[in-house]
Simulated scan of single mutants.
Amino acid sequence: MPDRMHDVVVAGGGPAGLAVALGCAQAGMDVVVCEKRPGVLDKACGEGLMPGAVRALAALGVDPPGHPIDGITYRQGALAAHAPFRCGSGRGVRRTQLHDALSEAVRRAGVPVSSTSVTDVLQYDDHVRAGVLRARYLVAADGLHSPIRDLVGLGSRGRTSAPRWGLRRHFALTPWSGGVEVTWAPRSEAYVTPVAPDVVGVAILSSVRGGFTDQLTAFPELAARLAGARPVSSVRGAGPLRQRTTGRVAGRVLLAGDAAGYVDALTGEGLALSLTTAAELVRCLRAGRPADYDRAWVRTSRRSRWLTESLLWARNRPALGRLVVPAAVRVPWLFAAAVHQLAR
Rank of each mutant, 00 (worst) to 15 (best):
V10D: 07
V10W: 06
P15Y: 08
G23A: 10
D30F: 11
V33H: 05
V40C: 10
D42A: 11
E47G: 13
G48F: 10
M50I: 03
V54R: 14
V62W: 02
P65N: 03
G66C: 11
H67E: 15
G71T: 04
T73K: 01
Q76D: 00
Q76I: 00
Q76R: 00
G77S: 07
G77M: 06
L79G: 00
A83G: 05
C87V: 01
G88V: 00
R91H: 10
R94S: 12
L98H: 10
D100R: 15
S103R: 13
A105F: 02
R108M: 08
A109I: 04
A109Q: 10
G110R: 02
P112Q: 11
T116Q: 14
D120N: 10
D120G: 11
L122W: 08
D126W: 11
D126S: 15
G131T: 12
R134A: 13
Y137H: 15
Y137S: 11
A140N: 14
A141T: 13
P147S: 06
I148M: 07
D150M: 05
L151C: 08
G155M: 05
S156F: 00
S156N: 03
S161A: 15
A162E: 10
P163S: 04
R164I: 00
G166L: 03
L167M: 02
R168F: 04
H170G: 04
A172F: 02
P175T: 03
V182S: 00
W184Y: 05
D198T: 13
V200A: 13
G210A: 08
F212P: 02
L216W: 05
A224W: 13
S234Y: 12
G239W: 07
P240H: 04
L241E: 01
A256L: 10
G257W: 04
G257L: 09
D258W: 06
G261H: 02
Y262R: 01
Y262N: 03
V263D: 00
D264A: 02
G268M: 09
L271Q: 05
L273K: 09
L281C: 08
L281A: 08
V282T: 15
P290K: 03
D292Q: 07
D294K: 14
D294H: 14
R299M: 06
R299W: 09
W306D: 15
L307I: 15
T308W: 02
T308I: 07
T308F: 04
E309G: 09
R315H: 10
N316V: 03
R317W: 01
A319W: 12
L320E: 09
G321M: 01
L323Q: 06
V324F: 02
A327R: 07
W333K: 12
F335Y: 14
V339N: 07
V339G: 06
Q341M: 11
R344Q: 09
R344N: 06
